[in-house]
């Protein structure tokens, strides 16, 4: 964007701009402060939802750092995070480009693509267990008819986590597709027309024009997906329940705070996860602002 002089009206909008975010800030204060402070406090105690919390200093954090299960869960979470985001971005971009044209029945196709986002991920996880079952699952039945041997999607440690990734990508790919598609559709057309007149190849146009313009949206997708995937929980509920080498960070936190009701310990895990996400998030966010302002 050219460095147009900011009109005066914008300079004088001090009151207006705060008024506009007023309700948001109110909600934030009302809902964020209490649970965060509560958890922060509890992370220094041995509270187990019974009796009074006793102060234990940094014990909970020490436990987190020395807990092998925690690091294993973190490692798996990062693995899932990386592959999900990579696949969702590459495949999402490809499919967004595919859909970014006029074709008969486009409304129906787009509507159908929404479907994975619509079903309850929790109920779906139990259905996945059924669909992908090695003996009774429809997928393996069909593979059998094709003469292939049955695949233990959810019943072998070497595959289960990848199946969780597949389930997650299945559910969330439409998100990337539609954000990118919206970005593609919203692009200023004149630059593309100019490029077309110049005779640039589609690949060149994509890398030189499309991708830079989509950069903010791509960063947004990465940022959101990092946040959500750090808290990935639903696909495990009805499938492996953390077994077969699939225990992810949020499942572990769920187990500690919601089955063991080890509130202090759970808070320490959660805050640890939060710090990690915050750091990654802040870095991404900075990039995002830079990318957006760079335009």
């Amino acid at each position: 964007m050219s460095a147009a002089p900011r009109p005066r009206l914008y300079e004088n909008d001090r009151v207006m701009k705060w008024l506009l975010i007023g309700p948001l800030v109110f909600f934030l204060l009302a809902f964020m402060v209490y649970p965060t402070l509560y958890s922060l406090y509890m992370s220094f105690t041995d509270y187990v939802m019974k009796g009074a919390p006793g102060f234990v200093g940094l014990d909970n954090y020490r436990w987190v750092l020395s807990d092998e299960a925690f690091w294993a869960a973190l490692g798996r979470t990062i693995y899932v995070l990386f592959w999900c985001i990579a696949i969702e971005l590459v495949l999402g971009m490809a499919l967004a480009l595919l859909l970014n044209r006029e074709f008969p029945g486009q409304g129906i196709v787009r509507g159908l693509c929404f479907i994975p986002l619509l079903v309850s991920p929790l109920s779906m996880s139990l259905m996945w267990n059924y669909i992908l079952h090695i003996q009774f699952g429809v997928v393996n039945t069909v593979l059998g008819w094709l003469g292939l041997s049955a695949v233990p999607f959810l019943s072998t440690p070497s595959l289960a986590l990848n199946t969780i990734i597949f389930i997650t990508v299945w559910q969330w790919l439409p998100f990337s597709i539609f954000v990118l598609l919206a970005g593609l559709k919203g692009m200023p057309r004149d630059q593309f027309e100019a490029a077309q007149i110049d005779g640039a190849s589609p690949i060149r146009v994509f890398f030189r024009l499309t991708l830079p313009l989509l950069k903010p949206l791509i960063i947004i997708i990465i940022l959101l997906r990092v946040m959500w995937l750090m808290r990935l929980f639903d696909p495990l509920y009805g499938t492996t329940r953390g077994g077969l080498n699939t225990e992810l960070l949020d499942w572990m936190i769920y187990r500690v705070s919601f089955v063991f009701f080890d509130i202090g310990q759970g808070a320490a895990y959660a805050l640890f996860a939060l710090y990690l996400t915050l750091i990654v998030g802040a870095l991404l966010f900075k990039q995002l602002i830079k990318a957006m302002d760079g335009r």
């Binding site: 965060t36 895990y269 939060l274």
Partner: peptide, 13 residues
Amino acid sequence: ISTRMFPGVVAAI
């Protein structure tokens, strides 16, 4: 944005 980084289960209690 960061409000959604906090694990929901922990905020639940």
